[in-house]
Design a protein around this nucleic acid. Structure first.
Lengths: 235, 235
DNA sequence: TAATTCTTAATTGGATCCAATATTATGCTT
DNA sequence: AAGCATAATATTGGATCCAATTAAGAATTA
C-alpha cells in the first residue's frame, strides 16, 4: 500500500510523541522522505502541518527540528484547555444536550466508575480510562454547539503530550497518582450533573478546576468534600 | 518579482475577506494557479492553510469552496476570543507586565482617548481606532506569558471578518454605532487598571464582557456607570 | 594560528509530470 | 423519455526536476 499524506503526518507525529524523535532532533525533507519511503512532497506538507500543531519549528534553510516543549508551555496549554472546555460546559448547560449526548455521557460515567472500582489499576485500565476521558470531553465540546471551541483546541491537541517534558503524563507516574483519577472522575460526575440541570456557571467552574487536575495540581480533599456537599443541596 | 507561497496565501485570504471571492465560490488548483500566475504547488499549500484557518472547505474531488460563515459561528468565535483574552488578562495581572508593556498600553489608551475626543468619527478615525484596538489586545496577550493563548486564537484570527455574514463588522454599521466604541474604550481603561493593580479576576471578567461588546451585545449604560463606580473605590 | 574569503554542498521553494479516482456528460437501450 | 452504462474530463496526490539561497567547510593569507 502506498503511504498517503495523512499517514506521513500521523507517523511523524507518533514518532515525536513516542520519543523516537527526541526534542531538538533535526529533520530535513530528503532524509525523512527516504526513511518513510515517500517523495518530498508529502513530507513537505507534513512538516508544515506539524509546525502548525506546534510540534516542529522551522530553522530557515536548515530544515526543521522537533520542538522542545517547556513545562511552562504545557501548563499554559492546559490552562487554555481549561477555559475553553469551561466555556463548552457552560454553553452545553445553557443550550441543553440532546438525548443521545446525555445518554452517552451517563454511560461514560458508569464506565469510569467500573474502571475505578478495581483494587489496583493496571496499565490497561489506565488506557481505557484515558479513552473514556477523551470521549467525555469530546462530547461536552460537541454539546456546546460551538465549533470555534474545537477549532481553538485543535492547536493544543498534542502539545501537552510532547515527549520533551513528559511531566505528569507518563504512565508510570499516572499509575502512582491513580487516586487523582478518582477525584477527576468525581468532577466528571459533577460536570454532568451541572450540565443536565442547566447550571451553566457551575459547569464552567468545575470544568476549569478539572483541567488543573490533569496537571496534578488538584485542590485538597477537603475542597472535594465541599464540592460534593454543595452538589447535594441544590437545584 | 516572483510570487511566493506566503503571497499566495495572503492574496487569496484578502480576496475572500474583501468579498472578491464570495461565500460558496468554488476554487480549483489549476484555474487558481493560472489566475495568480503561479504553479499548482503553492496553491495547494495555500488551500490547505486557508482550510486550516476555516476560510475554505474541501469538497472531495471537486475542489475547495469559500466557506459561508454563519452568524452563530461568528458569535461562537467571539465567545472563544472572550474566554481566551480573559485568561490572558488574568495571567497578565497575576504575573505582572514589563515596564515597556505597561507604557505601551498607557500610550494606546491615550491614543484612543484622542481619537474618541472628536465630535464625529470619520472612517479614518475608525481605521486608526481598530489598529489601536488590535495592538492593545496583542499586548495583553503577550503580557500573559502564555503562548498557547496566541496559538489558540490564531485559528479564529480571520473568521469573524469573513465576508459572508458581515454582521456588525462592516464600516457603515460600525460608524453608526460609534458610541459603543466609547464603552469599549472605557473597558480598555478598566482592564488596564485591573492588570496594573494585580486584580486578575476582575481583569478576566472585564475582558470577557469586552469581547461581547465587539459583537454589539453590550450591557446597558447603567452597568457601565456601576463599573466605573466600583473601579474608583477599590485597591 | 586566526581570520577572511571563496567554494561546495545542503536545503528549500516552485514547476511540471504522471497516475489514480471520482464526477459529469453523453449516448445507448428499453 | 428516462434510466443506465460507458466514456471523457476534471481534479487531486505523489514524484521528480530545476533554480535560488545560504550555511558550512576548506583554503589561503596575514
Amino acid at each position: 500500500m502506498q503511504k498517503t499524506q495523512l499517514n506521513v503526518v500521523t507517523s511523524l507525529r507518533q514518532m515525536i510523541l513516542e520519543g523516537e524523535l527526541k526534542a531538538g532532533a533535526r529533520l530535513a525533507e530528503i532524509p525523512t522522505s527516504e526513511k518513510l519511503g515517500v517523495s518530498r512532497t508529502p513530507v513537505r506538507i507534513a512538516f508544515r502541518a506539524l509546525e502548525q500543531e506546534g510540534l516542529l519549528t522551522k530553522l530557515p534553510r536548515r530544515g526543521y527540528e522537533v520542538r522542545s516543549v517547556s513545562t511552562e508551555e504545557i501548563i499554559g496549554a492546559v490552562e487554555v484547555r481549561g477555559v475553553l472546555e469551561g466555556l463548552a460546559a457552560r454553553q452545553a448547560a445553557e443550550r441543553g444536550m440532546s438525548e443521545d449526548q446525555q445518554k452517552a455521557l451517563a454511560a461514560l460515567l458508569e464506565e469510569g466508575d467500573r474502571i475505578l472500582a478495581v483494587d489496583e489499576l493496571t496499565e490497561s485500565d489506565l488506557e481505557q480510562y484515558q479513552q473514556m476521558n477523551k470521549r467525555f470531553h469530546d462530547i461536552v465540546i460537541e454539546a456546546s454547539h460551538n465549533p470555534a471551541i474545537h477549532a481553538a483546541l485543535s492547536r493544543n491537541e498534542h502539545l501537552p503530550f510532547a515527549s520533551a517534558s513528559a511531566l505528569a503524563f507518563d504512565k508510570a507516574h499516572m499509575l502512582r497518582e491513580a487516586k487523582r483519577f478518582e477525584f477527576a472522575h468525581m468532577q466528571h460526575h459533577h460536570v454532568y450533573h451541572a450540565i443536565v440541570n442547566g447550571l451553566g456557571t457551575r459547569a464552567e467552574g468545575i470544568m476549569r478546576e478539572h483541567a488543573n487536575a490533569t496537571l496534578g495540581y488538584i485542590n485538597s480533599p477537603r475542597n472535594a468534600d465541599q464540592l460534593t456537599v454543595i452538589s447535594e443541596h441544590d437545584t
